[in-house]
Design a protein around this nucleic acid. Structure first.
Lengths: 205, 205
DNA sequence: GTCTATAATTCGATAGAC
DNA sequence: GTCTATCGAATTATAGAC
Protein backbone atom coordinates (compact mmCIF):
# COMPACT_ATOMS: atom_id res chain seq x y z
CA UNK A 1 0.00 0.00 0.00
CA UNK A 2 1.68 3.12 -1.25
CA UNK A 3 1.45 6.28 0.78
CA UNK A 4 0.46 9.60 -0.69
CA UNK A 5 3.19 12.16 -1.21
CA UNK A 6 1.81 14.49 1.47
CA UNK A 7 1.62 11.67 3.96
CA UNK A 8 5.23 10.70 3.28
CA UNK A 9 6.37 14.32 3.49
CA UNK A 10 4.80 14.58 6.92
CA UNK A 11 6.46 11.39 8.13
CA UNK A 12 9.87 12.50 6.87
CA UNK A 13 9.53 15.87 8.56
CA UNK A 14 8.24 14.25 11.75
CA UNK A 15 11.21 11.89 11.90
CA UNK A 16 13.56 14.84 11.57
CA UNK A 17 11.90 16.98 14.23
CA UNK A 18 11.19 14.19 16.72
CA UNK A 19 14.78 12.93 16.53
CA UNK A 20 16.14 16.45 16.93
CA UNK A 21 13.87 17.55 19.79
CA UNK A 22 12.52 14.40 21.40
CA UNK A 23 8.83 13.63 21.80
CA UNK A 24 8.17 16.28 24.44
CA UNK A 25 10.22 18.97 22.75
CA UNK A 26 8.78 18.47 19.26
CA UNK A 27 6.02 20.84 18.13
CA UNK A 28 3.31 19.90 15.66
CA UNK A 29 3.62 23.35 14.09
CA UNK A 30 7.33 22.88 13.47
CA UNK A 31 6.73 19.51 11.84
CA UNK A 32 4.07 21.05 9.60
CA UNK A 33 6.36 23.91 8.61
CA UNK A 34 9.21 21.52 7.92
CA UNK A 35 6.95 19.38 5.74
CA UNK A 36 5.55 22.45 4.04
CA UNK A 37 1.92 21.60 4.81
CA UNK A 38 -0.89 23.02 6.88
CA UNK A 39 -0.72 21.95 10.51
CA UNK A 40 -4.26 20.63 10.32
CA UNK A 41 -3.20 17.93 7.88
CA UNK A 42 -1.08 16.24 10.52
CA UNK A 43 -4.28 15.54 12.41
CA UNK A 44 -6.17 14.60 9.28
CA UNK A 45 -3.65 11.91 8.38
CA UNK A 46 -2.39 10.80 11.78
CA UNK A 47 -5.11 11.74 14.28
CA UNK A 48 -2.91 13.08 17.07
CA UNK A 49 0.65 13.57 18.24
CA UNK A 50 0.88 10.16 19.91
CA UNK A 51 -0.14 8.38 16.72
CA UNK A 52 2.32 10.36 14.62
CA UNK A 53 5.06 9.64 17.14
CA UNK A 54 4.36 5.91 16.96
CA UNK A 55 4.53 6.09 13.17
CA UNK A 56 7.90 7.83 13.42
CA UNK A 57 9.27 5.21 15.79
CA UNK A 58 8.13 2.42 13.49
CA UNK A 59 9.82 4.09 10.53
CA UNK A 60 13.10 4.55 12.38
CA UNK A 61 12.99 1.02 13.72
CA UNK A 62 12.44 -0.44 10.26
CA UNK A 63 15.55 1.33 9.05
CA UNK A 64 17.58 -0.17 11.89
CA UNK A 65 17.06 -3.69 10.60
CA UNK A 66 19.15 -2.98 7.55
CA UNK A 67 21.83 -5.48 8.36
CA UNK A 68 25.55 -4.96 8.20
CA UNK A 69 25.93 -8.65 7.41
CA UNK A 70 25.52 -9.77 3.82
CA UNK A 71 25.40 -13.19 2.17
CA UNK A 72 28.73 -12.53 0.48
CA UNK A 73 30.43 -12.52 3.89
CA UNK A 74 29.69 -16.23 4.37
CA UNK A 75 32.74 -17.33 2.44
CA UNK A 76 35.21 -15.22 4.41
CA UNK A 77 37.51 -16.60 7.09
CA UNK A 78 36.51 -15.45 10.55
CA UNK A 79 39.43 -13.05 10.64
CA UNK A 80 38.28 -11.43 7.41
CA UNK A 81 34.66 -11.54 8.52
CA UNK A 82 35.46 -9.72 11.77
CA UNK A 83 37.40 -7.03 9.97
CA UNK A 84 34.62 -6.44 7.44
CA UNK A 85 31.93 -6.52 10.13
CA UNK A 86 33.67 -3.86 12.22
CA UNK A 87 34.22 -1.67 9.18
CA UNK A 88 30.60 -1.86 8.10
CA UNK A 89 29.24 -1.63 11.64
CA UNK A 90 31.08 1.64 12.32
CA UNK A 91 29.77 3.15 9.08
CA UNK A 92 26.27 1.93 9.83
CA UNK A 93 26.29 3.39 13.35
CA UNK A 94 27.76 6.67 12.17
CA UNK A 95 24.89 7.17 9.74
CA UNK A 96 22.28 6.37 12.39
CA UNK A 97 23.79 7.78 15.56
CA UNK A 98 21.02 10.33 16.12
CA UNK A 99 18.28 7.75 15.59
CA UNK A 100 19.92 5.41 18.07
CA UNK A 101 20.23 8.08 20.71
CA UNK A 102 16.63 9.16 20.18
CA UNK A 103 15.31 5.61 20.53
CA UNK A 104 17.46 4.92 23.57
CA UNK A 105 16.13 8.01 25.30
CA UNK A 106 12.47 7.46 24.48
CA UNK A 107 12.69 3.77 25.39
CA UNK A 108 14.12 4.57 28.80
CA UNK A 109 11.44 7.26 29.31
CA UNK A 110 8.93 4.54 28.42
CA UNK A 111 7.55 6.54 25.52
CA UNK A 112 8.25 3.52 23.35
CA UNK A 113 7.01 0.02 24.00
CA UNK A 114 9.74 -2.23 22.63
CA UNK A 115 7.54 -5.29 22.37
CA UNK A 116 5.01 -3.48 20.22
CA UNK A 117 7.75 -2.27 17.91
CA UNK A 118 9.61 -5.54 17.61
CA UNK A 119 6.64 -7.84 17.18
CA UNK A 120 5.06 -5.46 14.70
CA UNK A 121 8.11 -5.24 12.48
CA UNK A 122 8.92 -7.93 10.00
CA UNK A 123 12.66 -8.13 10.14
CA UNK A 124 13.39 -8.78 6.46
CA UNK A 125 16.71 -10.41 7.30
CA UNK A 126 15.20 -13.12 9.46
CA UNK A 127 17.78 -13.38 12.19
CA UNK A 128 19.05 -10.37 14.10
CA UNK A 129 22.74 -9.41 14.20
CA UNK A 130 23.18 -11.01 17.61
CA UNK A 131 21.98 -14.40 16.37
CA UNK A 132 24.02 -14.22 13.19
CA UNK A 133 27.16 -13.34 15.12
CA UNK A 134 26.54 -16.16 17.59
CA UNK A 135 26.24 -18.67 14.77
CA UNK A 136 29.33 -17.39 13.01
CA UNK A 137 31.31 -17.54 16.26
CA UNK A 138 30.21 -21.09 17.02
CA UNK A 139 31.16 -22.10 13.52
CA UNK A 140 34.64 -20.53 13.77
CA UNK A 141 35.23 -22.22 17.12
CA UNK A 142 34.20 -25.61 15.67
CA UNK A 143 36.59 -25.12 12.77
CA UNK A 144 39.32 -24.11 15.20
CA UNK A 145 39.78 -20.77 13.50
CA UNK A 146 39.56 -19.10 16.92
CA UNK A 147 39.86 -20.18 20.53
CA UNK A 148 36.78 -21.09 22.55
CA UNK A 149 35.20 -17.82 23.54
CA UNK A 150 32.17 -16.94 25.64
CA UNK A 151 29.80 -15.85 22.88
CA UNK A 152 27.78 -13.40 24.96
CA UNK A 153 30.80 -11.66 26.43
CA UNK A 154 32.54 -11.46 23.07
CA UNK A 155 29.53 -9.84 21.41
CA UNK A 156 29.18 -7.41 24.31
CA UNK A 157 32.86 -6.52 23.92
CA UNK A 158 32.39 -5.97 20.21
CA UNK A 159 29.22 -3.90 20.53
CA UNK A 160 30.71 -1.83 23.35
CA UNK A 161 33.80 -1.00 21.35
CA UNK A 162 31.83 -0.24 18.18
CA UNK A 163 29.11 1.91 19.69
CA UNK A 164 30.80 4.01 22.36
CA UNK A 165 32.43 6.55 20.07
CA UNK A 166 29.07 7.58 18.66
CA UNK A 167 27.33 7.65 22.00
CA UNK A 168 29.95 9.88 23.57
CA UNK A 169 30.33 12.09 20.52
CA UNK A 170 28.05 14.97 21.63
CA UNK A 171 30.13 15.33 24.80
CA UNK A 172 33.45 15.07 23.00
CA UNK A 173 32.32 17.66 20.48
CA UNK A 174 31.02 19.90 23.26
CA UNK A 175 34.43 19.98 24.93
CA UNK A 176 36.78 19.75 21.99
CA UNK A 177 35.01 20.61 18.73
CA UNK A 178 35.68 18.09 16.00
CA UNK A 179 34.67 18.59 12.39
CA UNK A 180 33.46 15.83 10.08
CA UNK A 181 36.91 15.19 8.62
CA UNK A 182 38.42 14.72 12.07
CA UNK A 183 35.55 12.46 13.04
CA UNK A 184 36.09 10.40 9.91
CA UNK A 185 39.74 9.85 10.72
CA UNK A 186 38.94 9.04 14.36
CA UNK A 187 36.49 6.44 13.10
CA UNK A 188 39.14 4.87 10.89
CA UNK A 189 41.58 4.70 13.78
CA UNK A 190 38.95 3.09 15.99
CA UNK A 191 38.10 0.47 13.35
CA UNK A 192 41.73 -0.64 13.26
CA UNK A 193 42.13 -0.58 17.03
CA UNK A 194 38.96 -2.55 17.74
CA UNK A 195 39.85 -5.21 15.19
CA UNK A 196 43.40 -5.47 16.53
CA UNK A 197 42.24 -5.81 20.14
CA UNK A 198 39.56 -8.40 19.46
CA UNK A 199 41.43 -10.48 16.94
CA UNK A 200 44.50 -10.71 19.18
CA UNK A 201 42.20 -11.92 21.90
CA UNK A 202 40.62 -14.77 19.98
CA UNK A 203 43.16 -15.92 17.43
CA UNK A 204 44.68 -19.29 18.15
CA UNK A 205 48.44 -18.92 17.79
CA UNK B 1 26.69 29.18 52.30
CA UNK B 2 24.16 26.71 53.57
CA UNK B 3 20.90 26.31 51.75
CA UNK B 4 17.59 26.31 53.51
CA UNK B 5 15.83 23.02 53.91
CA UNK B 6 13.01 24.00 51.54
CA UNK B 7 15.49 25.08 48.90
CA UNK B 8 17.34 21.80 49.16
CA UNK B 9 14.10 19.81 49.06
CA UNK B 10 13.19 21.55 45.82
CA UNK B 11 16.57 20.84 44.25
CA UNK B 12 16.42 17.17 45.23
CA UNK B 13 12.94 16.81 43.80
CA UNK B 14 13.92 18.73 40.66
CA UNK B 15 16.91 16.44 40.07
CA UNK B 16 14.64 13.43 40.34
CA UNK B 17 11.94 14.72 38.00
CA UNK B 18 14.25 16.30 35.42
CA UNK B 19 16.34 13.13 35.17
CA UNK B 20 13.24 10.97 34.86
CA UNK B 21 11.38 13.12 32.33
CA UNK B 22 13.97 15.34 30.67
CA UNK B 23 13.79 19.14 30.58
CA UNK B 24 10.84 19.33 28.20
CA UNK B 25 8.88 16.54 29.84
CA UNK B 26 9.34 17.75 33.42
CA UNK B 27 6.49 19.74 34.98
CA UNK B 28 6.93 22.40 37.63
CA UNK B 29 3.79 21.12 39.36
CA UNK B 30 5.22 17.59 39.56
CA UNK B 31 8.47 18.88 41.05
CA UNK B 32 6.54 20.87 43.64
CA UNK B 33 4.40 17.86 44.55
CA UNK B 34 7.47 15.66 44.81
CA UNK B 35 9.17 18.19 47.08
CA UNK B 36 6.00 18.62 49.12
CA UNK B 37 5.88 22.39 48.65
CA UNK B 38 3.65 24.91 46.95
CA UNK B 39 4.40 25.34 43.26
CA UNK B 40 4.83 29.06 43.73
CA UNK B 41 7.90 28.51 45.89
CA UNK B 42 9.83 27.11 42.95
CA UNK B 43 9.57 30.54 41.35
CA UNK B 44 10.29 32.32 44.60
CA UNK B 45 13.59 30.49 45.06
CA UNK B 46 14.67 29.83 41.48
CA UNK B 47 12.89 32.44 39.37
CA UNK B 48 11.91 30.23 36.44
CA UNK B 49 12.19 26.76 34.94
CA UNK B 50 15.40 27.51 33.04
CA UNK B 51 17.15 28.66 36.20
CA UNK B 52 16.01 25.63 38.16
CA UNK B 53 17.14 23.37 35.34
CA UNK B 54 20.61 24.94 35.35
CA UNK B 55 20.81 24.43 39.11
CA UNK B 56 19.91 20.76 38.62
CA UNK B 57 22.58 20.29 35.96
CA UNK B 58 25.20 21.89 38.19
CA UNK B 59 24.24 19.59 41.06
CA UNK B 60 24.42 16.48 38.92
CA UNK B 61 27.70 17.56 37.37
CA UNK B 62 29.29 18.19 40.74
CA UNK B 63 28.43 14.64 41.76
CA UNK B 64 30.12 13.30 38.64
CA UNK B 65 33.51 14.58 39.73
CA UNK B 66 33.59 12.13 42.58
CA UNK B 67 36.58 10.23 41.35
CA UNK B 68 36.99 6.49 41.18
CA UNK B 69 40.71 6.96 41.67
CA UNK B 70 42.03 7.38 45.19
CA UNK B 71 45.45 8.18 46.60
CA UNK B 72 45.78 4.69 48.01
CA UNK B 73 45.84 3.29 44.49
CA UNK B 74 49.19 4.94 43.79
CA UNK B 75 51.17 2.11 45.35
CA UNK B 76 49.54 -0.65 43.32
CA UNK B 77 51.16 -2.34 40.36
CA UNK B 78 49.51 -1.40 37.08
CA UNK B 79 47.86 -4.80 36.90
CA UNK B 80 46.32 -4.30 40.33
CA UNK B 81 45.46 -0.69 39.55
CA UNK B 82 43.60 -1.67 36.37
CA UNK B 83 41.62 -4.33 38.19
CA UNK B 84 40.62 -1.98 40.98
CA UNK B 85 39.83 0.83 38.57
CA UNK B 86 37.48 -1.34 36.52
CA UNK B 87 35.78 -2.63 39.65
CA UNK B 88 35.19 0.84 41.04
CA UNK B 89 34.32 2.36 37.67
CA UNK B 90 31.54 -0.16 37.05
CA UNK B 91 30.08 0.50 40.50
CA UNK B 92 30.35 4.24 40.00
CA UNK B 93 28.62 4.11 36.61
CA UNK B 94 25.90 1.82 37.88
CA UNK B 95 24.96 4.29 40.59
CA UNK B 96 24.86 7.20 38.15
CA UNK B 97 23.57 5.61 34.97
CA UNK B 98 20.40 7.71 34.81
CA UNK B 99 22.28 10.94 35.43
CA UNK B 100 24.72 10.14 32.66
CA UNK B 101 21.97 9.38 30.19
CA UNK B 102 20.12 12.55 31.13
CA UNK B 103 23.19 14.74 30.66
CA UNK B 104 24.10 13.06 27.40
CA UNK B 105 20.63 13.72 26.03
CA UNK B 106 20.39 17.33 27.15
CA UNK B 107 23.91 18.09 25.96
CA UNK B 108 23.16 16.81 22.50
CA UNK B 109 19.87 18.77 22.44
CA UNK B 110 22.00 21.80 23.39
CA UNK B 111 19.99 22.39 26.54
CA UNK B 112 23.27 22.27 28.43
CA UNK B 113 26.31 24.36 27.66
CA UNK B 114 29.26 22.17 28.59
CA UNK B 115 31.75 25.00 28.88
CA UNK B 116 29.59 26.85 31.37
CA UNK B 117 29.29 23.71 33.47
CA UNK B 118 32.92 22.68 33.36
CA UNK B 119 34.46 26.10 33.94
CA UNK B 120 31.98 26.86 36.70
CA UNK B 121 32.70 23.69 38.62
CA UNK B 122 35.75 23.38 40.79
CA UNK B 123 36.82 19.83 40.27
CA UNK B 124 37.94 18.99 43.79
CA UNK B 125 40.25 16.28 42.53
CA UNK B 126 42.31 18.56 40.32
CA UNK B 127 42.91 16.35 37.35
CA UNK B 128 40.13 14.54 35.56
CA UNK B 129 40.06 10.76 35.19
CA UNK B 130 41.38 10.95 31.63
CA UNK B 131 44.49 12.83 32.73
CA UNK B 132 45.12 10.58 35.70
CA UNK B 133 44.83 7.48 33.57
CA UNK B 134 47.17 8.95 30.97
CA UNK B 135 49.80 9.65 33.61
CA UNK B 136 49.45 6.22 35.15
CA UNK B 137 49.77 4.56 31.75
CA UNK B 138 52.87 6.55 30.82
CA UNK B 139 54.40 5.60 34.16
CA UNK B 140 53.67 1.89 33.68
CA UNK B 141 55.14 1.98 30.18
CA UNK B 142 58.29 3.67 31.46
CA UNK B 143 58.65 1.04 34.16
CA UNK B 144 58.09 -1.69 31.56
CA UNK B 145 55.12 -3.04 33.46
CA UNK B 146 53.15 -3.00 30.21
CA UNK B 147 53.95 -2.74 26.51
CA UNK B 148 53.91 0.61 24.73
CA UNK B 149 50.27 1.41 24.12
CA UNK B 150 48.53 4.28 22.39
CA UNK B 151 47.16 6.10 25.43
CA UNK B 152 44.10 7.61 23.73
CA UNK B 153 43.02 4.37 22.10
CA UNK B 154 43.53 2.40 25.30
CA UNK B 155 41.42 4.79 27.34
CA UNK B 156 38.71 4.76 24.66
CA UNK B 157 38.77 0.95 24.78
CA UNK B 158 38.46 1.01 28.56
CA UNK B 159 35.68 3.60 28.67
CA UNK B 160 33.78 1.85 25.88
CA UNK B 161 33.90 -1.48 27.65
CA UNK B 162 32.98 0.00 31.03
CA UNK B 163 30.12 2.20 29.95
CA UNK B 164 28.24 0.27 27.29
CA UNK B 165 26.40 -2.11 29.60
CA UNK B 166 24.72 0.78 31.38
CA UNK B 167 23.92 2.70 28.23
CA UNK B 168 22.25 -0.28 26.60
CA UNK B 169 20.48 -1.41 29.74
CA UNK B 170 17.07 0.18 29.07
CA UNK B 171 16.91 -1.68 25.77
CA UNK B 172 18.10 -4.97 27.23
CA UNK B 173 15.57 -4.68 30.04
CA UNK B 174 12.85 -3.76 27.56
CA UNK B 175 13.39 -6.95 25.59
CA UNK B 176 14.42 -9.37 28.29
CA UNK B 177 13.49 -8.12 31.75
CA UNK B 178 16.36 -8.34 34.21
CA UNK B 179 15.99 -7.78 37.93
CA UNK B 180 18.59 -6.10 40.12
CA UNK B 181 20.16 -9.38 41.19
CA UNK B 182 20.65 -10.47 37.59
CA UNK B 183 22.06 -7.07 36.73
CA UNK B 184 24.48 -7.32 39.64
CA UNK B 185 25.80 -10.65 38.45
CA UNK B 186 26.03 -9.42 34.85
CA UNK B 187 28.09 -6.50 36.12
CA UNK B 188 30.45 -8.85 37.97
CA UNK B 189 30.92 -10.95 34.84
CA UNK B 190 31.66 -7.87 32.79
CA UNK B 191 34.23 -6.59 35.29
CA UNK B 192 36.17 -9.84 34.97
CA UNK B 193 35.86 -9.98 31.19
CA UNK B 194 36.94 -6.37 30.64
CA UNK B 195 39.97 -6.78 32.89
CA UNK B 196 40.94 -10.06 31.21
CA UNK B 197 40.65 -8.58 27.72
CA UNK B 198 42.58 -5.40 28.45
CA UNK B 199 45.28 -6.91 30.62
CA UNK B 200 46.01 -9.64 28.10
CA UNK B 201 46.38 -6.92 25.52
CA UNK B 202 48.94 -4.83 27.37
CA UNK B 203 50.90 -7.22 29.59
CA UNK B 204 54.45 -7.82 28.51
CA UNK B 205 54.98 -11.56 28.56
C1' DG C 1 -8.32 17.12 0.83
C1' DT C 2 -7.11 21.48 2.36
C1' DC C 3 -7.83 25.73 4.47
C1' DT C 4 -9.12 29.46 8.27
C1' DA C 5 -10.61 30.14 12.58
C1' DT C 6 -11.06 28.90 17.06
C1' DA C 7 -12.06 25.85 20.95
C1' DA C 8 -9.95 23.43 24.87
C1' DT C 9 -6.34 22.55 27.68
C1' DT C 10 -2.02 22.65 29.76
C1' DC C 11 1.47 25.05 31.94
C1' DG C 12 4.76 28.56 33.39
C1' DA C 13 4.58 32.65 35.77
C1' DT C 14 2.74 36.55 38.70
C1' DA C 15 -0.30 39.50 41.76
C1' DG C 16 -1.57 40.26 46.10
C1' DA C 17 -3.32 38.72 50.76
C1' DC C 18 -1.51 37.10 55.08
C1' DG D 1 8.13 33.11 53.32
C1' DT D 2 4.08 30.95 51.99
C1' DC D 3 -0.43 30.65 50.21
C1' DT D 4 -4.72 31.25 46.94
C1' DA D 5 -6.19 32.75 42.85
C1' DT D 6 -5.57 33.74 38.30
C1' DC D 7 -3.42 35.57 34.11
C1' DG D 8 -1.48 34.87 29.63
C1' DA D 9 1.14 32.33 26.43
C1' DA D 10 1.80 28.21 24.09
C1' DT D 11 0.08 24.15 22.08
C1' DT D 12 -2.85 20.31 20.76
C1' DA D 13 -6.95 19.40 18.59
C1' DT D 14 -11.41 20.30 16.17
C1' DA D 15 -15.37 22.72 13.67
C1' DG D 16 -16.88 24.03 9.53
C1' DA D 17 -16.33 26.50 4.97
C1' DC D 18 -14.66 25.61 0.33
Amino acid sequence: MKKKQVEQDIINAAVKIFVAKGKDGARMQEIADSAGVNKMLLHYYFKDKDTLFLEVVKNINADLYGSVIEESMNTLTFQEFLSVFIDRHFNYLNERKDSFQFLLWEISRKQVDLHEIISGSNNPYGKNPFEILSDRLADAIAKEEIREVDTTEFILDLFSLDRFLFIGLPVIRGIAPMDDAELASAIERRKKEVFRLLWNDIKIN
